[in-house]
Structures are given as C-alpha cells and as structure tokens.
Design a protein around this nucleic acid. Structure first.
Lengths: 235, 235
DNA sequence: CAAAAAAACTGATATTTATCAGTTTTTGAT
DNA sequence: ATCAAAAACTGATAAATATCAGTTTTTTTG
C-alpha cells in the first residue's frame, strides 16, 4: 500500500532522484573504472566526522545510518541511506571534512569511487552536474523537514514518524502484501527519534496496546499504518 | 576579534561561498537582465512554505529569517540570511515547492531573479554550476550542525550558540572594536533556540548575572565572548 | 544446547522545559 | 510629551522527558 497522499513519505526520507542513472554506459564505465566493493557488518564505520574524504560511496545493499555524536556519547541519527543512494559527496564538493559519521546498521555492500573520478565526471558531464544539483536540492527539503520534526514535534510524534520512515526503508525487496519487519535496535530507534531508550520502549508498548503495531523479539511490525499516521499527527 | 579557532562559526551560520562572484560581467548582466528590487519591512513575508517558486532571491541588505511553522503556530527558525546570500533556489532546482518560509526581520532589500534566467545561466556556465554545488555542499554542513544543536544541546547551550551566531550576523558594517548590538525580539530569539520565550528571558538574565552580556531595552550586547563560548559548551 | 552476554523492558524519581496568569517596561504614533 | 499598544519580564505550577537501578527476555557463542 502506498502512502502517497496520506503522508508525504518522500519528503521525509528518500533521495528518490537517482543521480547515477543519467550517465551513459560509456560515462558510467569511466566513473567506475577504479571502483572498489566493500562488505560491511553491523556497526562497521564507513566514515567518521572530521575525517578528510578521499572519495564517495554508493550503497549497494543493506542500510546505513548517518549520525553525529555529542559530548556524552549519544548519537543523533540524521539520515538513513538504503540501496542506490550516494553518500559522502558533500565534503568532496565543498573541500571540507565529513560533517557526520556513517555506519552499517546490518550487513551492507558499498562501492567506493575515488574523488578524482567523481570530480572528473562532474566536469565532463553537465547533465550529471545538473542532476546532482537537483538531487541535493531535494535532500535539502528532507533535512529541513528533519529539523522541523526534531524541533517541533512531541516524543510520541517523533517516534511515530521514525517508524513510518523505517517501514518504507525496510520495504526493499519485499512483496506489497508482505508484513514488513522493522529490524532495528531500541537504541538506534531512540537515536532516530531523539528520545531516551527507555521512553521509546514505553511508547512502543503504548502503540502496541493501541493496535498500531506488534513485536517479535526486537522486530517491529506495523499492523495499522493509518493509526500510526494519525499518531504522527500529520496535517 | 575573530572566532576562528575558538568556535567554528562558519560551520554554524555562514554561506561564505559567494556564488554570484564567479560570473563574468557579461554573464552577470545576462542573469540580472530582468531583476527587480524590493524594499521590505519587518515581518514582510518573502515566500511561504508550500508555494510554487517563480524565481530566486538575493539579500542586498538587512536580515531574513527562514522558518517553519507548526500546528500550534510556533515558528522554528532554520536559518538567518544576510547581505549577499542567495535564497529560495533549492525548490527551483528540484522542481518542488518551498520547504520553508522567509520573512524580513528588519528593513531589508532583496533582488528577485526570474527562474528562467537563473536556469539559463546554470546551463550556460559550468563554472557557475560547480560553484553552486560547492555552496550547497557547505550549506549541507550547516544544516547538519543545526540538527545536532537542536537535538543534542540543552536549552542554555542552544541559546548561547544562537547568540554567538547572531553576534556574527549583526557584525555587518561595523568596525571591529565597536560593540555589536544584537537587535532581535525575544520571540525570534526563542524560535531560533527552540525555547519558550519566558525561558529565553530567564536565561538572558542569568547570562547577564554571569557577566556574559548586557541589555539596553531589547538590544543585547555580548560583553565576554569567551564566557559565552564556554556557556555553549563547545568542544 | 547451555551458559554468558547483550538487549529489552519496568518502575520510581529527578530534571528540564513549557504553560499560565499576570505586572512592568519599552516602543511607536499622535 | 503623552498615551496606547506591544514587548519584556516575573513567579508559580504543570507537563514532558531523562535518569537510575534494577529484572527479564532474547541473542550469541563456545
């Protein structure tokens, strides 16, 4: 079932504009001539805030969290990247260091493209540059909405929105009628919603009592998406 | 006195990469051939969330807040734009609607460039496109840091950070040794720091008691920037 | 498959921040 | 300069959320 029209899911989480797809086969071959593949396991760090980038990453499979760590060690998850998404190109373009860190949330495959090849393709292909501008502009909308969610929504609303986003992120590869098991630790969920872990757990059992979801161990299954959207208090 | 090295002020608030400056005189003339100037007064809305953009804006003088309004009518200020900054080009590039609203915080001059002229220049000038990519990437860092401030800092820390940013934003046109009067309503300050207005006022008098600042009516003057940076708990 | 480790969960309490109902001060218009 | 309106400010209270100190369940590993 699609959420279009009910909840603007695309605005909250997806980078639907496929950036690489605008390249011709020839250009693609040029861009990926020095590409390397990496298999990552849960918790593996892909890049760390403050480090100097040497290339960009493409998520091939799995899920990656982008986050910032504060003084007390708490993580705030800023974005969740899935298959097909580009990561880590902003600091390459701006000549800065990484503004956040990225880590695999499960077994994940990523491709690494050296920054020289990326910048080279950008200079060669005006279409690619324009498409990247478009994709970044969209990401901007997503980040702006993230700010408003964190700053203006209550705890229960933030959790409900995080669950709606996660459900979409975990849909990948499943049939439409399948139940979608959201496989995420309570700690990661808390860091997404900006809540203490204990409060996430308490809210989850409230949602369960309301018939919104069920749990199987750590896995969360949304039973009534409309009720969940209502709980998110979306206007 | 510069804050470089003490507090990474640029990361938090400035779009220092001047986008228009890379254009030749000829290109500039082409871009600004249909430009119109507008004089705006305090509170005047420049664009509103959800509206369809028909061009981009350049702030010439004054200060503009970019914000989102929630169900209860509360504003969260996302960014504060000053002289030289481009506004409202993201939705033009992505073909979306405005993700946030913009309003003048004081008497302000803005230029309006029709989107056709902007897109035309982008197609004509690869240097311009690359520069825009660079500027947007930097903005990304700023937004990412905004998220971490809102999500991970305490109320007093958020207020201290807002004041540091505001002090820089109000520096424009003053001599280095001048006191910088931050002229902002308590309501706007609260909406920047993500606090209730009453708590901002209480915190301001705490800061005053600590010798960090003084007030003259609504105007705030930072007396000890090092103490303020300390209060922001920056590492 | 049993033991150990990790994660999920619970209840009580503390802390932070917002809300409400005002009073006082400042600002802007005549 | 005066008055009305708006903004700044104060104190008391309420609500939301975090923290602490555990117990129970689930997952992982030898």
């Amino acid at each position: 079932m699609s959420l279009n029209g009910i909840f603007p899911i695309d605005r909250w989480n997806f980078t639907t504009h496929s950036v690489l797809s605008v390249l011709s086969d020839q250009e693609m071959a040029l861009l990926t001539r020095h590409v390397t593949e990496q298999r990552l396991f849960k918790g593996d760090v892909i890049f760390r805030e403050g480090a100097v980038p040497s290339g960009i990453f493409v998520v091939r499979s799995g899920r990656v969290k982008k986050y910032k760590v504060d003084q007390t060690g708490r993580e705030q998850i800023i974005y969740l990247a899935g298959p097909g998404e580009l990561m880590g190109y902003h600091p390459v373009l701006s000549g800065e260091r990484y503004a956040d860190s990225a880590a695999a949330m499960e077994e994940t495959m990523v491709s690494f493209i050296p920054k020289e090849d990326f910048m080279d393709m950008l200079a060669r292909s005006p279409v690619f540059a324009l498409r990247l501008l478009k994709a970044m502009s969209h990401e901007f909308t997503v980040l702006t909405n993230t700010i408003s969610v964190i700053a203006q929504r209550t705890g229960p609303e933030r959790l409900a929105i995080a669950l709606i986003v996660l459900r979409e992120k975990f849909k990948y590869g499943l049939n439409d009628h399948d139940a979608i098991p959201i496989n995420i630790s309570r700690a990661d969920l808390a860091n997404m919603a900006g809540l203490a872990e204990e409060n996430v757990i308490r809210l989850l059992s409230e949602f369960k009592a309301e018939g919104i979801l069920s749990t199987q161990g750590r896995k969360i299954i949304i039973k009534d998406i409309h009720l969940l959207v209502k709980r998110a208090n979306y206007r």
